[in-house]
Simulated scan of single mutants.
Amino acid sequence: MSVPLLDPQKLIAELRSRAQALGFDAFGIARADARPDLPDKLAHALAEGWHADMDWMAETETRRADPRRLWDEARSVILLGVNYGPDTDPMTLLSQPDIGIISAYARNRDYHDIIKGRLKEVAGLLAQRAGADVKVFVDTAPLMEKPLAEAAGLGWQGKHSVLVSRDFGSWLFLGAILTSLDLPADKPGTQSCGSCTRCLDICPTNAFPAPFRLDARKCLAYYSVEHKGAIPRQFRRPMGNRVYGCDDCLAVCPWNKFASISREAKLRSRPEFERPALAELVQLDDAGFRALFSGSPVKRIGQARFLRNVLICIGNSGDAGHVPAVLDRLDDASPLVRGAAIWALRRLDPERADGLRQAHLAREGDETVRAEWDGTV
């Protein structure tokens, strides 16, 4: 049965209304071919190595650079955003070294799960009303949501590379609906950072080689979330008490002052993730880790990588009261955890570390852990 053609503006109004009812705070439409500049920009970033060891970015380069290569029937892209702005300034926790900071985006249920169901409802409505083919994406496919969101008028990519919204600052989760339907596009966002460089200046590791460019090889968010090995020694002290992610460049954005407009629709943090104590986090066994972070994006990195982060933060705390817990982790089953525990012990009690070195080296078979015993802080 054929589907009668609808007035495009009425269709968009209905989709926008449904999206708002589902909790989306931002809605915009771009043509699938709206960003012909993306292939060259992506190729340059990959050639410079800014993706670090996230090889999947290079492996999907062709599809990632153009939505039509991902799906050749795509004609329009609907971009939707959910405000996840935290109720308090994440930067205030940096002065509390016994607290582990979890990035604001990870303090609720996994945003992939939250947004995908809502996107499917909007996409289903579009398919029902217009008979169009649709595909839904939430950061799980090679689609460059941020530049497309800029093309759809949701905001602009700031100098920290994150989308900035006039209404919600740097705190928007993004989802996309690709459709075979040609829809009227919204006016693209206009770059409005001006001369402000707060996001670049605040970065503790100088991860921005230039405005609008992020080098993951120097990014704490990358090392604490994506990186599978030991945290490189030069980035350990800058981690401070960040156990998962880094919000500094987002948190200082002046446009964040408008992020409280949609209080009823915005996502709320789980209280236990707002000020978790390092002393409690370091005690988590695998079952405890899975239970605490059930449904959270933190769970995806696994207990060993999470404890690696926690132990680095404990080493930065300056609190010798953590030493007994650190000693317990020197014999952890994971070399990743053992190595981080050695570094933490050297920071908190170097004499104890020197005294234990020979005994542990005698039974340590992992070369990376042996190197930690021989390393310096």
Score class of each variant (00 low, 15 high):
residue 4 P to T: 09
residue 7 D to F: 10
residue 10 K to F: 13
residue 11 L to M: 08
residue 11 L to K: 05
residue 16 R to I: 01
residue 19 A to N: 12
residue 22 L to T: 13
residue 23 G to Q: 06
residue 24 F to R: 11
residue 25 D to F: 06
residue 29 I to D: 00
residue 31 R to V: 00
residue 35 R to E: 10
residue 35 R to K: 05
residue 39 P to I: 04
residue 40 D to G: 02
residue 42 L to T: 07
residue 44 H to R: 15
residue 44 H to V: 12
residue 50 W to R: 14
residue 55 D to N: 10
residue 57 M to P: 08
residue 59 E to Q: 15
residue 65 A to C: 01
residue 67 P to W: 03
residue 67 P to R: 08
residue 68 R to F: 11
residue 69 R to M: 13
residue 71 W to I: 01
residue 73 E to M: 06
residue 75 R to C: 02
residue 76 S to Q: 11
residue 77 V to I: 06
residue 78 I to G: 04
residue 83 N to G: 01
residue 85 G to W: 09
residue 86 P to A: 11
residue 87 D to G: 05
residue 88 T to F: 13
residue 89 D to N: 13
residue 91 M to L: 15
residue 91 M to F: 11
residue 93 L to G: 15
residue 94 L to N: 03
residue 94 L to P: 02
residue 95 S to G: 04
residue 99 I to A: 06
residue 100 G to I: 13
residue 102 I to P: 14
residue 103 S to M: 13
residue 108 N to T: 12
residue 109 R to F: 01
residue 120 K to H: 11
residue 121 E to F: 08
residue 122 V to Y: 12
residue 123 A to F: 09
residue 125 L to T: 04
residue 126 L to Y: 02
residue 128 Q to H: 07
residue 130 A to S: 13
residue 132 A to V: 06
residue 137 F to L: 06
residue 140 T to R: 08
residue 143 L to Q: 09
residue 143 L to T: 02
residue 143 L to R: 12
residue 144 M to I: 00
residue 144 M to Q: 03
residue 144 M to R: 08
residue 145 E to C: 14
residue 145 E to Q: 06
residue 153 G to R: 06
residue 156 W to V: 04
residue 161 S to R: 15
residue 162 V to S: 07
residue 163 L to V: 10
residue 165 S to P: 15
residue 169 G to A: 12
residue 173 F to L: 14
residue 177 I to C: 05
residue 178 L to I: 11
residue 180 S to V: 01
residue 182 D to C: 07
residue 183 L to Q: 02
residue 186 D to R: 00
residue 194 G to V: 07
residue 195 S to N: 12
residue 197 T to G: 05
residue 197 T to N: 14
residue 201 D to H: 05
residue 202 I to Y: 02
residue 203 C to G: 08
residue 208 F to D: 11
residue 211 P to A: 08
residue 212 F to G: 15
residue 215 D to S: 13
residue 218 K to Q: 15
residue 222 Y to D: 14
residue 229 G to W: 10
residue 230 A to F: 09
residue 231 I to Y: 11
residue 235 F to I: 06
residue 235 F to H: 14
residue 239 M to V: 07
residue 240 G to T: 08
residue 244 Y to M: 14
residue 251 A to C: 13
residue 253 C to S: 03
residue 253 C to Y: 14
residue 257 K to W: 05
residue 258 F to R: 15
residue 264 E to K: 15
residue 264 E to Y: 10
residue 266 K to W: 06
residue 267 L to C: 04
residue 273 F to P: 03
residue 283 Q to C: 12
residue 284 L to R: 02
residue 289 F to D: 04
residue 290 R to A: 10
residue 295 G to A: 03
residue 296 S to M: 05
residue 299 K to W: 05
residue 303 Q to W: 00
residue 305 R to W: 00
residue 306 F to I: 09
residue 308 R to F: 07
residue 312 I to P: 00
residue 313 C to H: 01
residue 317 S to A: 07
residue 321 G to P: 14
residue 325 A to R: 04
residue 328 D to A: 11
residue 329 R to N: 02
residue 330 L to P: 01
residue 331 D to K: 06
residue 332 D to E: 10
residue 333 A to E: 10
residue 335 P to Q: 00
residue 339 G to V: 10
residue 347 R to A: 08
residue 354 D to G: 00
residue 354 D to S: 07
residue 357 R to D: 00
residue 357 R to H: 09
residue 364 E to F: 00
residue 365 G to L: 03
residue 366 D to H: 02
residue 367 E to W: 04
residue 374 D to P: 01
residue 376 T to W: 09
